[in-house]
Structures are given as structure tokens and as C-alpha cells.
């Protein structure tokens, strides 16, 4: 399942949980799923500082497991702390939000392509 606040992703893919909230809200939704036993497929954060200022973020999680994955819980908690640390001082880049939508979609698709042909 993809958890996203990016409308382009919601339009293009099925199995999407879309929120009209912020990136922080998206991360918190992901955290709640991880706490229920779901696992992260893609990392909650991007690889560059500039993408941290994006108004959009899409994260892939997979099926619910019997036990909580503590490592993944740690990753999402750390990611929320890291995100808030930056965004308490910065605003998201609203002027170029359409570009962020596209790049978030393309980076998500790069992650999906890494996962093709796998069954676990």
C-alpha cells in the first residue's frame, strides 16, 4: 500500500491511502500502521535536503505481520523527529509544488521498480 498526500500518486495508482494533510501527517499515518504490525518497504525520508522541503511525500508499506517490526518503528520515529527538526524552522516550498508532485511520483516509481519480481 502507498501512503501519500500527493494527488498525482493517488490518481495513477490503486491501493493508495491518500491524505489531504501535510507530509508530517503522512509520516504519522505511516507510523500508526507500523505500530499495528505493517512494515516499511520504502524509507520515509528522501535522500536530499531539498526534498525534505517538499509539500508531498509517498511511502510504501507492505502487509501486516504478526509482530511489530521494532527496527522499522525506530526508522519511522527517527524520520519524524528529523523531519520536524528541519520544518520547525522552514516552510515547505509552495511556489514549485507542481514540480515536487512530479519528482515525488518519479522517486516513488523508482522505488516500485526496485521491488518488481519479488514475493516475500
Amino acid at each position: 500500500m502507498i501512503i501519500t498526500n500527493n494527488p498525482l500518486v493517488a490518481e495513477k495508482y490503486e491501493n493508495v491511502l491518500w491524505t489531504d494533510g501535510s507530509v508530517e501527517k503522512t509520516l504519522i499515518i505511516v507510523r500508526d500502521f507500523i505500530h499495528q504490525g505493517y512494515e516499511l518497504v520504502s524509507h520515509p525520508l528522501a535522500a536530499s535536503l531539498r526534498m525534505l522541503f517538499s509539500p508531498y511525500r509517498s511511502i510504501i508499506i507492505n502487509n501486516k505481520k504478526e509482530k511489530l517490526n521494532f527496527e522499522h518503528a525506530q526508522i519511522i520515529e527517527d524520520s519524524i523527529i528529523k523531519y520536524k527538526k528541519h520544518m520547525d524552522l522552514r516552510k515547505t516550498d509552495e511556489k514549485t509544488r507542481d514540480d515536487y508532485k512530479k519528482i515525488d511520483l518519479l522517486l516513488l516509481e523508482a522505488a516500485l521498480s526496485e521491488e518488481k519480481g519479488k514475493w516475500y
Binding site: E39, S42, A46, A111, E115
Partner: peptide, 9 residues
């Protein structure tokens, strides 16, 4: 390589 997926990492 730095992957975006946890499996890749």
C-alpha cells in the same frame, strides 16, 4: 548504491 527501499539498503 544508496537505495530508497529498505530491502535495497
Amino acid at each position: 548504491p544508496e537505495h530508497t527501499t529498505l530491502a535495497g539498503k
